[in-house]
Design a protein around this nucleic acid. Structure first.
Lengths: 345, 345
DNA sequence: TCTTAAATTGTGCTCGAACACAGCGTCGCT
DNA sequence: AGCGACGCTGTGTTCGAGCACAATTTAAGA
């Protein structure tokens, strides 16, 4: 219960605080028997250094590098900065500085360029969205060799040792399936991938797998599970064709934040009975959620992901806390009635 | 960007650090013109004192009093201690001590007794669940007169100035309504209050109001909205009678954590088509969620409520942060597929 | 003008950890 | 014996804020 200081321990051990300090930091120049005795004492009383005092003395400016997709190019990333700033303000007692670099989420070259720029600022730790698998892998290996702690979020680079913060995508596919199953008596279901690029391929595949696995677990589900890929620009036209081909379709699962494209098409059909589940609280998605065309959205909570990443990194720097290898956020189910508080928290 | 210290400011103002300190803390004994000049300077450079150094010097032990319902009497409260301990461990760099007092959630006398005991420990700030309106109101007024900062959660005492952390109950009723509306083609709905006691009356009424308001907004909803109150002990028998009286019933909304009672009854009916929505991740509720008798649960997140309360209080003590008057948590929708991570986070 | 009280301002120590440096004893070598 | 080298230990300063107390200036009264 009582908090021991180095001075207390010095007195107990009958030596000076300098010697205790040498033992604690393994700085040598301590007689073997004294070292053993002090080490024993330290563990006996479970000595915890006063981190306040340590930080005051060290008086260090911690530098964090952030490498994120540019929200101007994709509004999905808009809220990340909020999360980062929340974490920063929680720790504004400490001198933590951040250098943010925004890359074009469609350009691997821009990713690498900004990564170089970030390296120039010689950050102590790094927060990044490893959007491009191959490039991110190499970059992460580089940081590991430099012994720089990294937190990644949104995308999991499984081969990397960097900490990952995000959702269980397979399970989120199952959540979507369960939702569509709940709100439909039965019928055909469609998994729709929109604007699929190789960078997101793994994402969408995991969700698809989870979705399918749910209906397999249900056991001889009466309807069919269809699949449809749509490319940018032609998405809405192709979708209309797809819908007319499948009149028994009862539910649609869009595997990314582009559900609003589907919603636009469904909206034109009079009295569509097709239920729609998608991802992410984009402005247009929320509008369709409120007017009833989208039934549920799954919230991936990029704000919280960025917030947690920052928090982990800062606590690591300031308190030398260990960062978990992986942190999976809960899968938030959103409908028209509970959406409001998620937009600000 | 640069961090100014008292010494820096003293130099800039051409006085000693003692004078700066007197100005900052309004301790008087400073010539008017010097005071004005220093104050101007402080605001010009937006001086932020180094809270690390302040805490080191003050070296204070902060005492928090906690007054919570006993989890042994109602398992709903089980996870509160987890939340409290999480907050405590996040701030273990500071010397924050907590004295927890558990009261019987069925006894106002026990609430008052434990409150007295807590007062004896002379806490700096207090975290409490003001379960009993009348008694809690008086207690809170007392603390206000003692100038002790209080965080309450779970129950809102609207007349009090104490901070409240919890959910928007009216809105959570709307969420339940929307969910039942989504998973049913139509039909009668029942709001079921189980074990209603005066202490929870407001709770349940708010949820009921929200639930009804949703169906009013839908506009000439085809089914009826029924209501049913069940008392402890006879709940399941009375419910069977109620169900046989209302054969067109399609959905049930249980306004507290006792949905498992309804689930037990529904389970016996072969192929029941009645959908069920309730509250809280109790063990038995989760089992029924997984076997499909309960369709959705609304998570009130008592762990998070307790965690946030502690966090607010500690940040207030340590960093002198202001605590918001009210903090409403998002309303989490839980089904069988996303329940897992909520049990530990 | 001198004395004394009051008003103002400056100095120095403290908190706990980190680390530089000084001190001291022992040993070996010439 | 004299000398440095080395191993070990103790001392003192630093970080920034807070506060007690010393020091100085100013005002007031005789």
């Amino acid at each position: 219960m009582k908090k021991y200081t180095i001075k207390d321990i010095a007195q107990l051990a009958g030596v000076s605080k300098g010697t205790i300090d040498r033992v604690i930091h393994n700085r040598g120049n301590v007689a073997k028997d004294v070292e053993d005795k002090v080490k024993q004492l330290l563990s006996d009383i479970n000595y915890q250094p006063n981190l306040i005092a340590r930080n005051l003395k060290n008086n260090k400016v911690f530098k964090i590098g952030a490498l994120l997709p540019d929200p101007e190019k994709d509004p999905y990333w808009d809220v990340c900065m909020d999360g980062i700033n929340t974490a920063l303000s929680e720790f504004n007692a400490f001198d933590v500085r951040i250098n943010t670099f925004l890359f074009d989420p469609t350009s691997t070259a821009d990713f690498l360029k900004n990564n170089e720029a970030m390296l120039q600022t010689s950050p102590d730790v790094i927060l990044m969205v490893p959007l491009f698998y191959k490039e991110a892998k190499r970059v992460l290996e580089h940081y590991q060799s430099l012994n720089i702690q990294v937190c990644t979020f949104n995308n999991q680079i499984t081969t990397s040792s960097a900490t990952f913060i995000g959702q269980d995508l397979y399970q989120s596919g199952r959540v979507a399936a369960k939702l569509l199953h709940s709100i439909n008596a039965g019928g055909d279901m469609a998994i729709i991938h929109i604007d699929e690029q190789y960078k997101n391929a793994v994402h969408m595949q995991e969700k698809e797998k989870g979705f399918k696995s749910y209906f397999e677990d249900v056991g001889n589900y009466e309807g069919q599970i269809l699949k449809c890929k749509l490319k940018h620009g032609e998405a809405e036209d192709k979708l209309s064709v797809f819908l007319s081909k499948h009149p028994h379709l009862k539910g649609i699962f869009v595997t990314n934040s582009k559900a609003f494209h589907v919603a636009r098409v469904l909206q034109t059909e009079t009295k569509s009975q097709i239920k729609l589940v998608g991802y992410d609280l984009l402005f247009e998605n929320i509008n369709h959620l409120k007017n009833g065309v989208i039934d549920f959205l799954i919230h991936q909570n990029p704000r919280q992901q960025a917030y947690l990443g920052m928090k982990f990194l800062i606590e690591h720097l300031v308190f030398e806390k260990q960062i978990p290898e992986q942190f999976l956020l809960p899968i938030d189910i959103i409908n028209s009635e509970n959406v409001a508080p998620f937009l600000r928290s």
